[in-house]
């Protein structure tokens, strides 16, 4: 068939065998599909939060709940300040991850090591902030099954708010934690010249996809819990 130029010749060649139709490595494609399924898990959590919030008459005011700051005196009212710092930490660590992936594409080992270290530091900083916030909320009497905060209109609230908050930020925090562990493993493998021997830094790209996904989820969690 030498005259099949009418339909879409490129596509026929693309799937005709002998080359990668997605022009991507197997592990990277599978990482994408894993992240897609993880997006549905987080989506289900956040949508159930929305459903329960919509089915309830009152809801606590997030600006009243998340208003403190480390080392600040008791009773300080600084809503959104601490969480915006957490958000920027995660954005910056996402940027250093992009720079690590970029350095990997150029086979620049030094650049990969430097940026991976910054990314790990950012991840640990975020986890520390979250640990402080959880500890602070717990000291105020908030936990799974315990909600000391009243609804915004002064009526009694159920424990739905704290249950969802600790479950969803906990699940996200667990993702950050595993991301930091993966990044540390990638850093060690880089230092051991594993990727130099393989001739490519594709593993850094895959770890990078996971790390960006963690940042992506935080964009939604941050907006939904702290702003809306």
């Amino acid at each position: 068939m030498s005259t099949t130029t009418t339909a879409s010749p490129n596509e026929a060649k693309l799937w005709g065998g002998g080359k990668s139709p997605f022009n991507s490595e197997y592990g990277k494609v599978m990482m994408w599909y894993f992240l897609m399924s993880d997006a549905f898990t987080f989506g289900a959590f956040l949508i159930s939060y929305g459903t329960v919030r919509f089915s309830t008459n009152g809801w606590p005011n997030s600006n009243e709940v998340f208003r403190s700051f480390p080392f600040a005196p008791d009773g300080v009212h600084a809503p959104l300040v601490f969480v915006s710092i957490m958000t920027f930490i995660l954005i910056i660590s996402s940027v250093t991850m992009v720079l690590a992936v970029h350095a990997g594409k150029n086979m620049d080992k030094k650049g990969v090591v430097r940026n991976m270290i910054w990314t790990i530091i950012g991840g640990l900083a975020f986890l520390s902030c979250q640990a402080w916030e959880w500890n602070h909320l717990h000291s105020e009497g908030a936990w799974w099954g315990m909600n000391p905060f009243l609804n915004a209109d002064g009526t009694a609230s159920s424990t739905n708010f704290t249950n969802f908050f600790f479950t969803i930020t906990g699940f996200h925090g667990f993702h950050v934690f595993s991301g930091v562990v993966i990044n540390i493993i990638m850093l060690i493998m880089t230092l051991l010249d594993k990727f130099e021997q393989r001739g490519h830094y594709l593993m850094i790209e895959k770890a990078g996809l996971y790390w960006h996904f963690v940042d992506l989820v935080w964009v939604f969690v941050f907006t939904i819990f702290y702003l809306l």
């Binding site: 009497g141 908030a142 315990m146 000391p148 002064g154 009526t155 009694a156 159920s158 424990t159």
Partner: peptide, 25 residues
């Protein structure tokens, strides 16, 4: 009716907060 009854805000004490949460439950 529950959405119209205002509750006194209990400040500070752990016990009070926990008890209140239990009542609400």
């Amino acid at each position: 009716e529950q959405a119209t009854i205002k509750v006194e805000k209990k400040e500070g004490e752990h016990g009070a907060a926990k008890q209140e949460a239990a009542e609400v439950k």
